[in-house]
């Protein structure tokens, strides 16, 4: 094994600079770090302006500065560890920085209220067929992902599906072609109907995780209230939350109802790709015929 002195030096320098000089000011912050606008730094990986993202961004830079020797699997592993760590830092910060001396349970309850209030528009109790613009907007919203903040926790199972959907579509040239050249999907009713059906299915799929997240958060609050020995660290609180989430999740995905909801989202996306294949074939056929007619005319 080779000691990577250059990396170690840069790392040690980063550690000393941040934790000894910058990080210690965190303990004197007047309010939540995000409210104070601290730490936005040079973040281009997270929309969250949290204090410790500054350090995590510098860690990324440090890693990348020595990336020339990184094999693909090591670099991929780094990204997964980094993403998880970013979440942990933001979670810890959220649980720590409050002025009123509120307990963790109260903080989670407040967070939950804010979360449900903000999301109530997005996750409506009944789903109507979306218009073209709504469909596009929802698709964009669904594809946005930020793994760093607590809100991302409810979407974590969705990330798996988004990656699968991206794989399906990236392997499918016709879908990309269709979006680039065929323009408005309204001109293509079959494709448009398939896309709308997918978006409705996706919304129902999302709602499962949204509800699950709320239940698990409430359970976390109840569990914390019931504990005589309160968790001593953010890691312990987070672990409790994650375990309750996982328990709920396992129950959810074992249910008959879920298998239908999941199948609906997968099958409807397959149909989107299938319709795009058909449209692509028709488009190519029409253009080929036109080109041949022109050639014959000349």
């Amino acid at each position: 094994m080779v000691e990577n002195t250059s990396f170690n030096d840069e790392w040690n320098n980063l550690q000393n600079t941040f934790w000894n000089n910058v990080g210690s000011s965190f303990t004197n912050l007047p309010q939540s770090a995000s409210d104070a606008g601290v730490g936005a730094g040079n973040s281009n990986q997270s929309s969250q302006s949290t204090f410790f993202n500054q350090w995590l961004n510098d860690v990324d830079k440090c890693w990348q500065n020595h990336a020339q020797t990184n094999s693909g699997d090591i670099d991929s592993l780094y990204k997964r560890v980094s993403s998880s760590s970013r979440f942990f830092f933001n979670f810890t910060e959220s649980m720590a920085t409050n002025q009123q001396g509120e307990t963790v349970e109260v903080l989670i309850e407040k967070y939950l209220k804010e979360f449900t209030d903000k999301s109530s528009v997005f996750v409506a109790p009944t789903v109507n067929k979306p218009t073209e613009n709504e469909a596009d907007e929802r698709l964009n919203t669904n594809q946005k992902d930020n793994n760093s903040d607590i809100n991302s926790l409810w979407k974590l199972p969705l990330v798996n599906w988004q990656q699968q959907a991206a794989l399906f579509s990236s392997q499918n040239k016709s879908l990309n072609f269709l979006s680039s050249f065929l323009g408005d999907t309204a001109d293509n009713p079959e494709f448009s109907a398939a896309l709308n059906a997918y978006l409705i299915a996706l919304q129902e799929f999302q709602r499962e995780f949204f509800n699950l997240f709320i239940v698990a958060a409430k359970q976390t609050v109840e569990a914390l209230k019931a504990l005589n020995d309160k968790p001593a660290s953010a890691k312990e609180i987070m672990t409790l939350w994650l375990e309750l989430l996982e328990t709920q999740y396992l129950e959810l995905i074992a249910a008959e109802h879920y298998s239908r909801v999941y199948a609906n989202v997968v099958n409807s996306w397959m149909l989107v790709i299938d319709k795009s294949n058909k449209s692509y074939a028709e488009f190519m056929q029409a253009n080929l015929s036109s080109a041949q007619a022109n050639a014959n005319g000349q």
Binding site: V59, A96, T103, S233
Partner: peptide, 29 residues
Amino acid sequence: MVNSSANQEAFDELKAYGEKFGHLLQGLK
């Protein structure tokens, strides 16, 4: 975890995590 003492606890926890993170990255390299 409350107030400045909560901040201090969180800071200590994250700093300790940061040190372990560094060990891991050096190990990966």
